[in-house]
Design a protein around this nucleic acid. Structure first.
Length: 417
DNA sequence: TGACGTCAAGATCCG
DNA sequence: CGGATCTTGACGTCA
């Protein structure tokens, strides 16, 4: 049972993906971007290993214009060492990775040019995983595509295009139910016709169900046979509805209580769960730390990252969590994360935000220049009087943290949420 | 033709 | 001029 997150991480310095627009894309520029992004990916993989994350989706933006412009570039050869080194880290840590072309990669389009571009895109994704030396269990997740007014025909077009795919793509391809056109029953039908594993997406199913009376666990069991031995363990996508947004919109964070309830229903099954959520690694670590009894040190590390976020929301919750962590023999993961969630539901009190900003300023007050001190005071004053948002203050503090290399602050969440 | 979703680049505005 | 904020880009389908 592995838990993972998609594509990018919050508060992991040096892990950002870069890109450019089509009109600025020269071969030289693309190669520089690719090199940068591979270094970022390595940073992310290292972060995952250190934080017990063993499931991860690699961003399709790794190679900008990977299926078009960059397909002409010899990036696999130029960066072969780096690619293999990343692959080795993944394999040695027993991490499982995947890739997920977006909703715009459509294999079953009536427009053959669109479908051909889709195939090119799948080639690109497969070649990333191949270049790292990763086996078939490192999957590429795809949606069925459009309907075009005739679902059976659209499905049969998918099937015939699938059959023509290169084996290097086929061996990795996995189908997912989507939130609009193809429900889980549709996808299972295609799966049994051509033998593709199925990723069941819980939120997509709740938005676009085949049968509301069939619950998540039943669908997960229904999908399990589509995973053959060399596909690796069955995978699913789990996310929660963003309250107040469109049905299907991912929540900002995974609420731990409903997640644990869901997870407990899966006991005895070996399932990898990809979380789709805005706060990415934060929710993944939350779930991982609550599912397994780690050392209390793991919670202290988490607390160190959250503390100024909590302080600016609620000094009461801040104190309460500090108390929790004083019990050295205990493992109060659930209580800690519940408290964190509770504090995030509160309305901000400006005085608390000022207080937290001053705590963070404490890291710089002895080394900052006079100009930096004045700027901090001015920005804080402007925030207090309502002339400026808190992000101006935070950004100034972030610049200082970068300048004076306060890694402790940089790997905390305060600047980013 | 806009909405959908996603993220950062690029453009523009501001002091 | 640097930094903050707004707009665009890149993809395809559907209403």
């Amino acid at each position: 049972m592995r838990i993972g997150y998609a594509c990018l991480a919050i508060a992991v310095p040096g892990s950002e993906m870069k890109s450019c627009t089509l009109k600025n894309a020269s071969p030289e520029r693309l190669l520089l971007l690719i090199e940068h992004n591979l270094n970022s990916l390595q940073t992310l993989i290292d972060y995952n290993i250190c934080n017990n994350v063993r499931l991860f989706r690699i961003s399709s933006d790794l190679i900008p214009f990977g299926s078009s412009l960059s397909a002409e570039l010899p990036w696999r050869e130029i960066f072969s060492e780096k690619l293999l080194a990343i692959g080795q880290k993944i394999l040695r840590s027993e991490m499982r990775v995947s890739m997920h072309p977006g909703q715009y990669t459509v294999l079953n389009s009536p427009d053959t040019l669109v479908a051909e571009r889709g195939v090119e895109d799948l080639h690109y994704h497969a070649s990333v995983l191949e270049s790292m030396g990763l086996g078939n269990e490192h999957k590429i997740i795809l949606h069925l595509g459009g309907v075009y007014g005739d679902k059976p025909q659209a499905i049969s077009r998918f099937i015939s295009r699938y059959k023509d795919l290169d084996p290097s793509i086929k061996k990795r391809l996995v189908l997912e139910n989507d939130d609009r056109m193809y429900n889980i029953e549709d996808v299972l039908g295609v799966s049994s016709a051509v033998g593709i594993p199925v990723v069941y997406d819980t939120l997509h199913n709740s938005v676009n169900p085949f049968d509301k009376a069939v619950d998540n666990v039943a669908w997960i069991k229904a999908c399990s046979d589509s995973w053959k031995k060399d596909d690796g363990p069955q995978k699913i996508h789990y996310s929660q509805q963003h309250q107040g947004k469109n049905p299907g919109a991912h929540s900002g964070s995974i609420q731990i209580a409903p997640f644990l309830e869901f997870w407990q229903q899966l006991s005895g099954m070996n399932i990898d769960i990809m979380l789709e959520v805005k706060d990415k690694n934060l929710s993944a670590l939350k779930c991982i730390n609550c599912m397994n009894e780690m050392s209390i040190a793991a919670l202290e590390t988490e607390w160190a990252r959250y503390k100024y976020c909590i302080l600016e929301r609620s000094p009461q919750h801040y104190q309460k969590i500090r108390q929790l962590l004083r019990e050295k023999g205990s493992y109060p993961a659930l209580k800690m994360y519940r408290s964190i969630e509770d504090s995030f539901d509160l309305q901000f009190v400006p005085g608390n935000r000022v207080n937290a900003a001053q705590h963070v300023w404490g890291y710089f007050k002895d080394k900052a220049s006079e100009a930096e001190r004045r700027r901090f005071q001015t920005l804080l004053q402007k925030f207090s009087s309502g002339e400026a948002g808190i992000q101006l203050v935070k950004n100034h503090l972030l610049r200082l943290a970068e300048k004076y290399q306060e890694d402790y602050l940089l790997s905390g969440y305060y600047f980013y949420i």
